[in-house]
Amino acid sequence: MEYFIQQLINGLTLGGIYALIALGYTMVYGIIQLINFAHGEFFAAGGYMGVILLSFLSANGYLATYPWLCLSGAIILSMAYCSLLATGVEKIAYKPLRKSSRLSVLLSALGMSIFIQNGLMLTQGVYDKAYPTIFSQGGFDFGNIKVSYMQIVMLLITILLLILLNLLVFKTRIGKAMRATAQDKTMSSLVGIKSDRIISLTFIIGASLAAAAGIMVGMYYGSVGYTMGFVPGIKAFAAAVLGGIGNITGAMIGGFLIGMIEIFGAGYISSEYKDVFAFIILIGVLYFMPTGIMGENIDDTRV
């Protein structure tokens, strides 16, 4: 039982990360039907921005005196940085191709992913960068079950961001505009919604969530590397598909599910095949529900 609970906690932590990244995929897909392969790179860029900021703060001694203030500052700043990065990527690589076929945008996205990854390598070096360890230590012990502070913080931040996103999309005017653009771009611009601006905004939100995930991964696991975006990117993409691509709630559920399946597959069967289990479930679900768990009509996409 203890073993089960410990693995459950592990699964929740990992799933939260996947959920945050998956949201970016699903939102962008929902609004312009583009699978943004550069999304994993926003996650990596966020992680790097976090390590740069936190190392700077730690070198100046602020980190030791105001740890939580520094942490929130770093998270917000790296989210802001990734928003800028995403706007740039969208302007350069996607906007000129809005009228062309979906395939060219997809290739452009792949190219952007390679470009950003190598950009990170050239500017930040090939060696992994270590995060300050101040947050990664300490935790609660319940008998044999260990929950580290960082796991709790990560889960809390994830849930907070998910709630904020839901409020934004379903309760505000901007959210309404986003949903309208997702349904019909031409019609929504006819009623006065600036669809280009809404599309940029969607990229920004997705990228900033990925940046938050990147910085939390860096703090929890202790380091970031320039290739870190690839594997979680693929997993999060799978999570978005599993949940029903284009659907926000679906992406959250998909993220947590993929995380859980991976951890339980590794914990109870073999960690050698943990990715296989995740993808078997994905194939199984898609076989019976081709649009994913929460997916509605295939041609009626939502943000």
Binding site: L14, M228, E262, F264, A266, G267, S270, S271, K274
Partner: peptide, 20 residues
């Protein structure tokens, strides 16, 4: 004798197994 994948960052599942 267990295996993990190249590029993995999360080893919590296999390490929980080690612990038990």
């Amino acid at each position: 004798h267990d295996h993990v994948n190249q590029g993995d960052k999360d080893f919590s599942a296999v390490l929980t197994k080690v612990k038990t």
